[in-house]
């Protein structure tokens, strides 16, 4: 069976980050300024991120991931990209940017890459919270999902995260999403499911 291990299921970059993860949190002595953890066991992946911040720059980051190869490689790549970034740059990191640097992931594996940046944002939120500062980045990256009612992805995320909306009906009751033109309904459902997964609701 010559060469059959060369043509692997994922890109060479994914393989490298899976086999040799960078910036792994395997040292208990790592002192973090901000900490974030997202994911759920039900879906089989969970991520934990700690950041060190100096002058609003991420000077160091450590992470741990329980999950599949895509999840491990995504978090590892995220760590490589983020160290040296300003908090604002880091906050704007998207799953698409991570998967691009990984040389792509199969379609059905894309959801495995969405936790890395969420854990990072949770760590930045935690850092700012500990500093008693408002989050100046949050507003900028918010995307309007329901145009009629002006509901953003952040609003939906917040309602799921704080368990104010645990069902799609509760979310509709609170936000009135999709009650006018209705074209956002599918997108809202998708986001709602994604956030439920991320925040283990």
């Amino acid at each position: 069976m010559s060469g059959f291990t060369n043509d692997w299921v994922y890109s060479d970059t994914v393989k490298e980050h899976f086999m040799n993860p960078k910036n792994l949190w395997d040292d208990d002595s790592f002192q973090y300024d901000g900490f974030g953890q997202v994911g759920s066991l039900a879906c089989g992946d969970q991520m934990r991120v700690g950041i060190q911040v100096r002058d609003d720059k991420i000077v160091d980051l450590r992470w741990q991931t329980y999950g599949c190869a895509s999840a491990i490689a995504s978090t590892s790549m995220m760590s490589v990209m983020v160290i040296g970034m300003t908090l604002e740059e880091a906050y704007n990191l998207t799953p698409a940017m991570i998967t691009e640097r990984l040389g792509g992931l199969p379609q059905h594996k894309f959801h495995c890459s969405v936790l890395g940046d969420k854990a990072l944002r949770a760590a930045i939120d935690d850092y700012l919270d500990k500093q008693g500062r408002d989050n100046p980045y949050r507003r900028r990256v918010a995307k309007v999902i329901c145009e009629c009612k002006g509901i953003t992805d952040h609003r939906i995320e917040e309602l799921v995260k704080t368990k104010q909306a645990t069902t799609i009906d509760e979310l509709r009751e609170i936000t009135q999403f999709g009650t006018v033109c209705g074209k956002c309904r599918y997108k809202v459902h998708q986001l709602f499911e994604e956030y439920k997964h991320i925040y283990n609701v």
């Binding site: 291990t5 692997w8 299921v9 393989k15 899976f18 086999m19 039900a42 879906c43 089989g44 992946d45 329980y66 999950g67 599949c68 190869a69 895509s70 999840a71 491990i72 059905h108 594996k109 495995c112 997964h197």
Partner: peptide
């Protein structure tokens, strides 16, 4: 415990060993 099946499968695969897993991630479902 504390190790995910698809990761184990792929690590074994990189060492030439073929097994299967009941993990969701290996099938693409949740």
């Amino acid at each position: 415990a504390r190790a995910e099946g698809e990761s184990i499968l792929l690590m074994l695969d990189l060492n030439g060993i073929a097994v299967s897993t009941g993990s969701a991630c290996a099938t693409g479902s949740l």
